[in-house]
Design a protein around this nucleic acid. Structure first.
Lengths: 221, 221
DNA sequence: TTACTAGTGACATATTAGTGACACAGAGGA
DNA sequence: TCCTCTGTGTCACTAATATGTCACTAGTAA
């Protein structure tokens, strides 16, 4: 779920946005303290920022510049219907788009969507490695010194979690939750079976004992 | 020098735009015949299109859809300041941006600039190759050691996406979206059929298993 | 040993993709 | 205007397979 940070001082609009976004399936977070806004934004690390131009204290513009100093997170400016120069400035400051208040809901969503989609394409972890074994999530493969094995969806998911926490014990419950979203009637054994299938493929690649069983606790690579 | 095509029926605005753009160092071309606009646009092959929404005969929207059918050239809609739905439609139809009349000159130029810059980065290369197989998007052909096959538009689009992400799994949904713009009533099976048709052509060229099916995830070359 | 946890091989099936036939629309020619 | 051809979407059906379940075995810790 994408996290949207709302930076807007007018409480009414802020709450309206919050309700709207939450309803639309986003995780919305509001900024209410306009003193340390920047560090707050940084801490929240949102996927998109709705940024009002006119804020108490620091202006939206300078805030955006501060954000751009460390991140490329898309910024959608909220601006009153004012002089054209505003718009221009917003465009050139690295803000990715803007929308004028009062805004039309479908348009707001369409723009957010566009920005999110664009930025989603820009970031992706290429591959994860552990001890010469490389998991390539985009290709859906596991490679080790030239040899390669195709993975199915579930196998990929499991390995992805394990490779994301190398050396750590990942509880079976965590894996099950990640794979099947707490689907209550999923057999716990299913996980064992899937892990076994992965181990088979690993063996075919000449890899032994990559996935360790930590009895009563979980799996670990 | 970038070629800008002006599609605007009001002569006054059209000429104003023409002067403005020529003065700004663009090669401006005007459409004055609104009968065969689409083929005209196609023949001109501009780098950007300024497209009025309200045209005699065909609307700018449907025209844009027609353009999108064969090209990703950026389209900047010109619209009177009207209901919000205009904007929304423009955004969702694959138009890249819009601007309301009467427009502010620096803004117009800034937007054009933005679109041109973006599309310059996305420009299709002459040809794409993977393992000795060459896709030529301009010619619409697929070649492998001397032999060649013609591709239809849909086939080309599919292969283009796949060749642009060699070795990566491309989700069926992405392909469907790229091909048919989220047209809600497109059968998912249609993609399968088109992929099958491509595989037939590949087989005729002696290529087996270029396109892998990653069940539950997508296709991959 | 005992009690519990995880591994294994076989099996079932739901899901997903492939296939061939057909229908229809649009382009272009006669 | 009619005809033909081609591209493409749809349909009904078939094929493939990924994955969950089961019954049982093996391993491990107290």
């Amino acid at each position: 779920m994408e996290k949207i940070l709302i930076v807007e001082d007018e409480a009414l609009i802020r709450e309206e946005l919050y309700t709207l976004l939450t309803g639309a399936g986003y995780l919305a977070v509001c900024v209410t303290d306009f003193e340390n806004t920047l560090s707050l934004i940084r801490a929240e690390d949102p996927d998109l920022i709705l940024l009002d131009i006119s804020l108490p204290g620091q202006s939206g513009y300078s805030l955006c510049a501060g954000i751009r100093a460390y991140s490329d997170v898309p910024v959608l400016f909220l601006t009153g219907r004012t002089a054209a120069m505003d718009e221009l400035e917003a465009l050139t400051l690295g803000g990715d788009d803007y929308i004028t208040k009062p805004f039309h809901v479908p348009i707001l969503l369409a723009r957010m969507n566009r920005l999110l989609k664009r930025s989603a394409g820009a970031k992706k972890p290429e591959s994860l490695s552990y001890r010469g074994i490389t998991l390539n999530p985009v290709a859906g493969t596991l490679a080790v010194k030239g040899r390669e094995a195709d993975l199915t969806r579930t196998e990929l998911k499991i390995l992805y979690v394990l490779f994301s926490h190398p050396g750590e014990i990942v509880p079976r419950a965590d894996l099950t939750e990640y794979l099947w979203d707490n689907d209550i009637h999923i057999d716990d054994n299913t996980l064992s079976v899937n892990v076994m299938r992965i181990r088979e493929k690993l063996r075919a690649l000449g890899i032994e004992d990559l996935i360790q069983t930590k009895r009563g606790m979980g799996y670990k690579i």
